[in-house]
Amino acid sequence: MKIRLEQQNIGAAVMQIAEHDQFTAINSLKVSGKAVSNSFLINSHIAILCKYASEPNASGEYAFTFTEDQMKTLSSLLAKHEQLFFGLVCVEVGEICCLPKAQFQELIGYRKASAGKDELQYTILVTLKAGSSFRVYVNAAGTKGKFAGERLTIPRKDFPDSIFG
């Protein structure tokens, strides 16, 4: 089987998890018996969904888009898994932003409040400057260059330690 680009990029996150002292097992994460793409169940109780962005956009942001279908799957996973994390792989800088479930929901809430409604898809933006933590945010609906809600700060070294926390 030929190696796909997503397998190479997501594999970086999986390797760091597997090399952690508290790691014991990894399985595919399933909803209604069907495996969720790029998602894993770690140590039988920790869910992680991995996404990657190859390079930042012109504004220096790594964009991670969650489509309508992915959001439907996520609504089921968010309800089922207390320990749920998003491994956002920023390929060009070789770093992984570990976004916990509560912060993901907070960001989506900011965007929904800004738009005044549910949207078909959501984009989480991540920036990383040399020597600093990740800044994670969503843009305000209908306006360029403005944030919806607050920008969150995620320590650079959180992944993978925080998922085992």
Rank of each mutant, 00 (worst) to 15 (best):
S28Y: 12
E82I: 14
T127S: 00
A140C: 03
S132R: 07
S76M: 14
D21P: 11
A13E: 00
H81T: 10
A130T: 08
Q7C: 11
V93E: 05
S32W: 08
A12V: 15
F104S: 01
Q105T: 15
N139D: 08
Q83A: 07
Q16Y: 10
L152A: 02
Q7H: 13
V93K: 10
E150R: 11
E82F: 08
R135W: 02
C50I: 06
L125C: 10
T127F: 03
G142C: 08
Q105S: 14
A53N: 09
S44N: 13
S39I: 12
T67Y: 11
I46F: 05
D69S: 00
K30E: 09
G33V: 04
Q70L: 01
V89M: 12
L88P: 00
A58R: 13
N139A: 05
L29E: 00
G149Q: 08
G131V: 02
S76C: 06
S114Q: 12
A102F: 08
A113T: 05
E92M: 04
K72F: 07
K144T: 06
T65M: 12
S133R: 10
S114H: 06
H20S: 02
L84R: 07
K51Y: 12
A102G: 05
Y122M: 13
F134Q: 00
A53M: 06
N57F: 03
F64A: 09
K129T: 09
I48S: 14
K144I: 14
K117D: 05
D21A: 00
E61S: 10
A53P: 14
S39Q: 00
H81S: 04
A113N: 08
Y62I: 00
Y62M: 00
E95F: 02
N27P: 06
E55Q: 10
Y137I: 04
G94L: 03
A12S: 14
Y137C: 00
S132T: 15
I108L: 12
N43A: 12
E106T: 12
V89L: 01
P100V: 01
S28L: 07
A130H: 15
N139T: 03
F147T: 03
G145K: 13
Q83I: 05
L120H: 13
T67N: 03
L77R: 01
N9C: 05
G145V: 03
